[in-house]
Computed example of a mutant assay.
Amino acid sequence: MTRMRESDDLIIRPAQAEDEKELAALNRAAWTWLADVAPQPAEDAGVFDERHAPDQFLLALLGDRIVGYVRVVPPTPLASNQHVRQIQGLAVDAGARGRGIGVALVEAACGAARAQGARRITLRVLGHNAPARALYERCGFVVEGSLAEEFLIDGRYVDDVLMARTLTA
């Protein structure tokens, strides 16, 4: 097991194919209209497919239990955009919140992006998701733009907020 960061008993490591069942259960349990624009995944839905490979995910473990994940990918396949990485998913198990796991995952994502040669890391967050926006701001992300009323979620129009952080010193 590769350890990217250890704090108390928290370990952050890359995902492996055999993590899929536990990761899918966490993804389903963490689902909420506060953070998601698509319906809750089905009971039997997996996480990995042709667009979502294990090497895109970093997992947070307490003991041997997955309690969080972050997914980091190039935002496009274009060579002119390869200096950027994008967070396209972050979740922490409700029972493990308040222990700094979200911050640890975001910082690990930034470290992984930097190690891949990225100069910037970006993300999109729903405007009404105040807890996530506050987390990203604590990690040094700033709002760079907003798409007003981009989504209709549970009967309400919600903004799509674009945030980014520079990874160079």
Rank of each mutant, 00 (worst) to 15 (best):
A25D: 13
A17L: 09
P41H: 11
H128A: 11
N129P: 09
R85Y: 08
A104N: 06
D55H: 02
V37N: 01
A38F: 10
D49N: 02
A53T: 07
A96V: 07
N129D: 13
L135G: 07
V72T: 15
M1C: 03
A35F: 03
R124F: 05
L90S: 05
I11M: 15
L34K: 12
A96H: 09
V106N: 07
Q82M: 12
Q88Y: 05
S7K: 13
P41N: 09
R156V: 13
A60M: 08
S80M: 09
R119Y: 08
D19S: 14
H52K: 13
A60H: 09
V72M: 10
S7V: 11
V125W: 05
T168C: 08
Y69W: 14
L58C: 04
D159C: 07
R120V: 15
L105M: 06
P75Q: 11
G155Y: 05
A60C: 02
L58I: 06
W33D: 13
P41F: 10
F151C: 06
Q16H: 02
E137F: 02
A60T: 03
R97P: 05
A112F: 04
T166F: 14
V142P: 06
Q86K: 14
G102M: 02
A24K: 05
D19R: 05
A38G: 01
D159K: 09
E43C: 02
E50G: 11
L62I: 11
W31R: 05
L135H: 03
L105Y: 00
L78Q: 12
G117P: 15
H83K: 04
P14F: 03
E22C: 11
V143G: 00
E6Y: 00
A79L: 14
L61V: 06
A42Q: 10
F48P: 00
L147M: 04
E137W: 02
G46V: 07
N129T: 08
L23D: 09
G145L: 05
L123K: 11
E137G: 13
D160C: 12
G98T: 13
A134R: 12
R71K: 15
P54V: 02
L167S: 08
A53M: 03
E137Y: 02
E6K: 12
A38P: 01
D9P: 04
